[in-house]
Design a protein around this nucleic acid. Structure first.
Lengths: 159, 159
DNA sequence: TTAATTCCTACCAATTTAGTAGGAATTGAA
DNA sequence: TTCAATTCCTACTAAATTGGTAGGAATTAA
């Protein structure tokens, strides 16, 4: 129930990856797919949707690639996930409003769906790509310190 | 994205209906289906699952029917919906925990899914059938007062 | 015995999910 | 000019899920 599918998950990870590189050169699809262990051909479609939604900018041709179309602080998790998984709609009647609500039981239930909708929306809207990228970098640092003790996995630390 | 399907919606409405009759005689499947405008044959399957989950008690044979198996105050919206739509699992790795989390980006993203998971769970778990039934009765009273002015729809007010 | 009721199981069409695949268009560099 | 890297566009597909429909057996009160 209420799952975020692979679309939302992949897209979010790809966006965090791009956020961590924001301001630098573009990143190729292959680079993202390899790094994030996402099927390249599949990610291609997801990125196409993110581009159409205005979240990603692309440069075509050799040495082309992708970058975020906006500042990471301006992109929320909701913006990303809603593109891939469709708009948040806990239950149809939440959107339809009064006309779908004929009975009192239904009304009472609908009120809760509306509440739930709001709670989820607020949460997703409150998280920005910048926050996620910062947090990812922080985790990377911690891992870096940990690995340094054992002198292992240097390749993982580079980017 | 994150939708509650007809299963969850129908099941919840049926449970609220039963909650409003808790302590009285059993209610037949047909009565619930008719009143709540839910396909009878479909509702039958949903109720079967709720019964297996221990939320509904059944009496077989003529003049049999269903009642809640527990006090409405002891049944949360989460209890109901999770039976029909499966357990809340925003993203697989939320359950899997550490082992699914190899990369920092993924980790950062997972933390948010975990947060979201908690927010949704808390909300659904905080709403009891008793609250929903009380609220439904209240709405019914308001409508009752409204309709009394115009002297209309008396049949809707009865149950 | 009958009629009302729950219970069990199978079936189905349409949609969604999670990809795979082929190849055209664009562009920087040799 | 050519080549290789890259994005872009479109079609296809197997498996699962959704939202039901349907037939009939088992149980029980009257």
């Amino acid at each position: 129930m209420l799952e975020i599918g692979s679309k939302g998950e992949y897209a979010t990870r790809a966006m965090v990856y791009l956020a961590r590189r924001y301001g630098r050169h573009t990143t190729s699809l292959t680079a993202i797919a390899d790094e994030q262990r996402i099927p390249r051909r599949y990610l291609e479609q997801l990125i196409a949707e993110l581009r159409k939604a205005g979240l990603i900018a692309a440069t075509r041709g050799a040495s082309g690639g992708y970058t975020l179309a906006k500042d990471p602080a301006e992109i929320s998790l909701y913006d990303i996930v809603s593109v891939l998984e469709g708009p948040l709609m806990v239950q149809d009647c939440v959107e339809n409003g009064r006309n779908a609500c004929v009975f009192a039981d239904e009304c009472a239930v609908r009120e809760v769906w509306t509440d739930l909708h709001q709670v989820i929306y607020d949460k997703l809207k409150s998280v920005t790509l910048k926050q996620l990228a910062d947090r990812a970098n922080q985790i990377r640092k911690e891992q870096n310190a940990k690995y340094a003790i054992y002198s292992r996995y240097p390749s993982e630390m580079v980017n």
